[in-house]
């Protein structure tokens, strides 16, 4: 392959005379200093931004691979919330006569399931992501946060597909979305941050303690019942609402229903608590992650 070699050599990439002219203008060499670091470290946003393509490709890989060699393919992205909706509608809506704030129970359940399914999948993915990608961590350098970020981002495709189905359901049930729908992107953002903050904490813990992977399915299940997916938040006694709001997904799910269906008063206080909780979780998680990060390659 001499041809390739000469092409390679002849590529006019860099003028190679740096030894003679100190610090030439166009291609100054970055200097990396490698030293032991101690204690807490701040988040390096600029570096993460430089690695945005890696986040994109890792998320893209997860999406591509998720439904490979399945007969139904991407249809699973629709079937998961739809089947859950059907089951909930039969058991909770039909048999248990669960109140649904005056909405058709199926639609009520689906609007809750949409952000919930995203959150549950994204959190599970992100939490196990570091260990799942341990081969990358022990072989290549990149900011480790890229991995849980990609884990959370990968779920957005399914969420988008779920939204398509929602439009169909709205038409079927003859419900027009309220004007509050403009707040929906913010709510999606809050759902992403919720999954991210939990994912960052759990993924870093998972590196050290593999207990995390056994705890997650259970955690998600309990979390589902602590979230107004199958029942309306109005069912929770007023006195317990502040406590209830500590679950950020309560605010997100109620917010989704309010933005899409506009049935009740806004989830104002719930959302306020949700934002505060997510911020605390996220910031503390980032610090914990950054602290543990330097040992990942040795421990994983």
């Amino acid at each position: 392959m001499v041809e390739t070699l000469t092409e390679e050599t002849a590529r006019p990439a860099s003028p190679r005379h740096e030894g003679l002219e100190p610090a030439p203008g166009p291609r100054q060499r970055p200097i990396t200093v490698i030293e032991p670091t101690h204690g807490w470290r701040a988040l390096d946003v600029a570096e993460l931004w430089r690695y945005r393509e890696l986040i994109y490709f890792l998320a893209w890989r997860d999406v591509k691979v998720r439904y490979k060699q399945t007969a139904l393919g991407v249809a699973w992205a629709l079937l998961q919330p739809l089947l859950a909706m059907a089951i909930f509608t039969v058991f909770f809506g039909g048999l248990a006569r669960m109140p649904s704030d005056g909405l058709p129970y199926a639609l009520f359940a689906y609007t809750g399931l949409l952000p919930w399914t995203y959150f549950a999948n994204a959190t599970t993915n992100a939490s196990g992501s570091l260990v799942a990608n341990s081969n990358l961590i022990s072989k290549v350098y990149f900011p480790r946060l890229v991995i849980p970020l990609a884990g959370v981002a990968g779920g957005l495709v399914d969420l988008a597909i779920g939204f398509g189905m929602l439009v169909v359901l709205l038409v079927l049930f003859g419900v027009a979305p309220s004007a509050n729908v403009v707040f929906l992107p913010l709510l999606v953002g809050l759902a992403v941050l919720s999954a991210l903050s939990v994912g960052i904490w759990l993924s870093a813990l998972d590196v050290q303690y593999r207990d995390v992977r056994y705890a997650i399915p259970f955690l998600i299940q309990v979390w589902l019942f602590a979230t107004p997916v199958v029942y309306p938040a109005s069912l929770v006694p007023e006195a317990y609402r502040p406590l209830y709001g500590l679950n950020p997904m309560a605010g997100v799910v109620e917010g989704f229903r309010w933005a899409l269906l506009g049935h009740t008063a806004g989830p104002g206080p719930l959302l306020g608590v949700a934002v505060a909780v997510v911020l605390v979780l996220l910031v503390s998680g980032l610090f914990y992650f950054r602290r543990m990060e330097r040992g990942f390659a040795d421990v994983i």
Partner: peptide, 26 residues
């Protein structure tokens, strides 16, 4: 390659670093 941190000492690397500790990573 900055995969793991040193316990002591210091290294300075002048230029963009690429590492190839395994082929087909990922």
């Amino acid at each position: 390659a900055r995969i793991t941190e040193p316990t002591t000492g210091r290294a300075e690397v002048h230029g963009r670093v690429g590492s190839l500790l395994e082929v087909g990573t990922g």
